[in-house]
Simulated scan of single mutants.
Amino acid sequence: MNNQTVIGVFDTMAQANSAKEALTKQGFTSSDIDVSKYGSHGNRATDRKHDDDDNAIERFFENIFGDDDDDYERRRKVGREVASRGTVVTVHTNGMEKAKKAASILDRFGAIDMDDRYKQYENKSFNADTNRSRLNERFGNVDTDGMIEVVKEDVAIGKREVQTGGVTVRSHIIERPVEEAIRLRTEHVTVTRTPVDRPADAADFRDKTISMKETAEEAVVSKTARVVEEINIKKDVDTRTETVRETARETEVDIVKDAGDKLRNADGTTRTNTKRNDDLV
């Protein structure tokens, strides 16, 4: 397996952290990524020992380039000088394609061109304030250790349909008065009784029946209708108590007793001729 090591030096820790985050999102594992801070904006860190840092960086580049490299001395010198004033991100890959991918990601987050930066250090043309302003314009506030997201938009040009207007047609029913004058005929039967005084003959003594019907015309309207609504009809039953008053007829019998004539006895006294009630029934 062709293992490759990709090195990127950044002016700030924030850039290095953002690059690491992007690498992990692209499939690189955290164990394959090393981040070491030695300085920022071309200045060595004041809280670290320069000699120890230089020795560590020098050993690192010795392991990377090897003694048999014809340009070994220059690369080691350039790498040590530039790396000691920034943050180094090392990515270990297992192939050239992944190495190229890692290098592209490091470049997107502002990895330093070490040869060009070394020349600026040598001729004293590097300005930390100018460098800071340039990075802030490109990546935002790079002097924080927070994450800086670098966004790249992919533009896809296509087409889509949009609604720019429309027409809605609705139908509804309205009532239109219809009026027409028609003549209607109505028949009435009238019975007139006229007093007469004439002799009657045989023809007058027979039964007669005269029938005459009354008719009338009425207006008729014919319509064709469709059901547009259903109405449920129900009945509510109530009970009530009502007193009915009426009269009933029946026959009553009144019994009146009659005293009758006075009867004389043999001794000359009188008595009443009285009948029992049973005899009157």
Score class of each variant (00 low, 15 high):
Ser31Tyr: 13
Thr270Phe: 05
Ile105Val: 06
Arg183Met: 11
Glu81Met: 11
Lys98Val: 05
Arg198Tyr: 09
Ala128Lys: 13
Ala266Leu: 01
Gln4Trp: 08
Glu252Leu: 06
Val189Pro: 01
Asp236Gln: 08
Glu179Trp: 05
Ile7Thr: 07
Glu81Phe: 12
Ala181Met: 05
Val9Arg: 08
Asp261Ile: 08
Ile33Thr: 05
Arg138Trp: 12
Asp116Leu: 14
Thr194Glu: 07
Gly166Pro: 03
Arg198Lys: 12
Val228Asp: 13
Ala111Thr: 08
Arg132Asn: 13
Thr186Gln: 09
Lys37Gln: 13
Asp71Tyr: 02
Ala259Glu: 11
Gly260Asn: 02
Asn273Lys: 03
Val196Asn: 03
Thr241Leu: 14
Thr192Cys: 01
Glu21Ser: 15
Asn123Pro: 05
Ala216Leu: 06
Lys98Glu: 13
Ser40Phe: 02
Val155Phe: 12
Arg176His: 05
Asp145Cys: 03
Ser171Gly: 11
Ser36Lys: 15
Leu106Gln: 03
Phe205Gly: 05
Arg176Thr: 08
Ser211Met: 01
Lys159Glu: 09
Lys234Ala: 11
Ala203Pro: 02
Val244His: 01
Met13Ile: 06
Asp113His: 10
Lys208His: 08
Met1Gln: 04
Arg138Gly: 10
Thr24Asn: 15
Ser40Arg: 00
Glu250Pro: 04
Arg198Phe: 08
Ala156Thr: 15
Gly260Ala: 05
Gly165Lys: 06
Ser31Asp: 14
Asp204Gln: 05
Ile105Trp: 02
Arg226Ala: 15
Val189Lys: 00
Glu21Thr: 10
Val228Tyr: 09
Asn277Glu: 11
Asp116Gln: 15
Glu218Phe: 07
Asn141Gln: 05
Val228His: 07
Asp154Gly: 04
Asn273Asp: 04
Val82Phe: 11
Val220Pro: 07
Arg176Val: 04
Arg80Ala: 06
Thr164Gly: 09
Lys119Ser: 14
Thr29Gln: 09
Glu97Asn: 14
Gln4Arg: 11
Thr247Glu: 10
Asn232Met: 09
Arg170Ala: 05
Gly39Thr: 00
Asp154Met: 06
Arg226Leu: 15
Asp145Ser: 08
Asp54Phe: 13
Asp143Arg: 10
Thr247Trp: 06
Gly268Ile: 03
Val82His: 10
Arg245Lys: 04
Asn17Val: 06
Thr241Cys: 12
Asn43Gly: 04
Asn94Pro: 07
Arg85Gln: 02
Glu187Ile: 00
Asp51Trp: 14
Asp11Trp: 03
Val237Pro: 12
Glu62His: 14
Leu135Tyr: 02
Phe205Leu: 14
Thr46Glu: 08
Asp11Leu: 04
Asn127Gln: 03
Asn94Phe: 13
Ala14Met: 12
Gly158Asn: 11
Asn127Cys: 11
Asp154Leu: 07
Asp143Gly: 09
Asp11Glu: 09
Lys262Glu: 15
Thr274Pro: 00
Arg271His: 13
Asp47Thr: 00
Arg76Pro: 01
Asp71Gln: 05
Phe205Thr: 05
Ala102Ile: 01
Glu81Arg: 12
Lys223Val: 15
Lys77Arg: 10
Met96Trp: 12
Phe65Lys: 02
Asp278Asn: 02
Glu179Pro: 10
Ser171Arg: 10
Ala225Lys: 06
Lys152Ser: 09
Thr24Lys: 13
Glu62Gly: 14
